[in-house]
């Protein structure tokens, strides 16, 4: 096992793995049967891994979600489809390499699949802009989703992005408008939308293709309103508190299940999807097929109604009947008391 690819909290495994390797080579060299001893150690390593992975802190889950070996959108597409053909461009400005899409067959079901695409090495990552899409990416996604609607294909969106790209071109071309339009249109798209957060679910950039009938998260993915690093920097002026922020933000799949943000957690192979990509893709595939089948039982009207109320109900507020209304005369009374002081912003930095 490559020790560099281990996450820091996996270090207890390192010792065991070394020992196993030693025994294996010793066995070969001396031609002694040590297989029962090796098996025993392997069993122990498995237990240790299970122990570690059953007790992960949110911050550790975030690290797995960001793991450089973690399967990417195109890896999953490759594994879950029998055939796939990519379509490019938003017909407006360009083709965004950070958000890919196309049509394919999952078993015998034709689907439109979209997803953020990162790279596994720096060069590819730069081409893919680290999975951070521009407006043209979101517009391409919308174009392909409308196409799916026209032909009655279910849409499968695989989310894995640190966020929408914050840059000059992105702002100039209307990043906000692109995401807003997607949200509005997706809420009424007349074909099933299945959303899976496979790795990083970074804020508005994730949500930009994240509104649908089924929202699922892979076990070691995260979905957050802000990166914990940014959250800590903004709220506590200290990015070193990112670990704390990761816990406070409730960004893990179980937390979001409890908050009613997602519908399902998709289990991953032991040690994370990157440890057994094929198995991870198999589980994902069967969840997609199940969701498509469930949704196909609904009438279009039922589906759209359920989609609407799912998001209509999100959030938690309280009702305080005694808060009192703002009335002009009330404001007037207040103003009489204190008509001198002006609310001021001159002292606030721009």
């Amino acid at each position: 096992m490559d020790e560099n690819k281990l996450l820091d909290f996996e270090k207890p495994l390192l010792e065991l793995n070394k020992k196993i390797e030693e025994l294996e080579s010793f066995m070969k060299e001396k031609n002694i049967d040590l297989s029962s001893e090796i098996k025993r150690l392997e069993k122990r390593a498995e237990n240790v891994r299970e122990e570690i992975y059953n007790n992960l802190e949110p911050w550790q889950i975030l690290k797995i979600a960001r793991h450089p070996e973690r399967p990417l959108t195109l890896d999953y597409i490759d594994q879950i489809t029998d055939e796939f053909i990519e379509f490019k461009g938003d017909r407006r400005f360009g083709n965004d390499q950070a958000l890919v899409g196309g049509i394919g067959l999952i078993e015998d079901i034709p689907v439109t699949i979209l997803g953020h695409q990162k790279g596994k090495d720096t060069k590819v990552n730069i081409n893919r802009n680290f999975g951070m899409a521009h407006p043209e990416g979101y517009r391409k996604a919308m174009r392909l989703m409308r196409q799916a609607e026209k032909f009655g294909r279910p849409v499968v969106n695989l989310i894995n992005t640190p966020g929408a790209y914050p840059g000059i071109g992105a702002e100039k071309r209307g990043q906000a408008e692109a995401i807003a339009t997607n949200l509005m249109e997706m809420s009424g798209l007349k074909t099933p939308i299945i959303v899976i957060i496979t790795g990083e679910g970074g804020s508005g950039g994730a949500l930009g293709i994240g509104l649908g009938d089924r929202i699922m998260m892979m076990e070691f993915s995260y979905y957050s309103v802000s990166s914990p690093e940014a959250c800590a920097a903004i709220l506590w002026k200290n990015s070193d508190q990112a670990e704390e922020a990761a816990a406070a933000l409730k960004l893990t799949a179980p937390d979001l299940m409890e908050l009613g943000v997602i519908d399902k957690i998709i289990p991953e192979p032991a040690g994370g999807a990157h440890k057994d990509q094929k198995k991870a893709a198999e589980i994902l595939k069967s969840e997609i097929i199940t969701a498509v089948k469930e949704l196909s039982e609904l009438s279009e009207e039922q589906m759209l109604e359920q989609r609407y109320s799912k998001f209509r109900d999100m959030g938690e507020h309280i009702i305080k009947p005694d808060q009192g209304k703002i009335r002009e005369n009330l404001i007037d009374e207040d103003r009489k008391e204190d008509d001198q002081s002006l609310k001021r912003e001159n002292i606030q930095s721009k």
Binding site: A180, M184, S187, V225, K250, M314, G315
Partner: peptide, 27 residues
Amino acid sequence: GGARMQEGMLSLMQMAKTSAAVRRLHE
């Protein structure tokens, strides 16, 4: 100025909720 970070994902989901409502208005 941004999302109400103290409400985490519930804050982000208000984007979806409000946009879906606006669609019905346009419709």
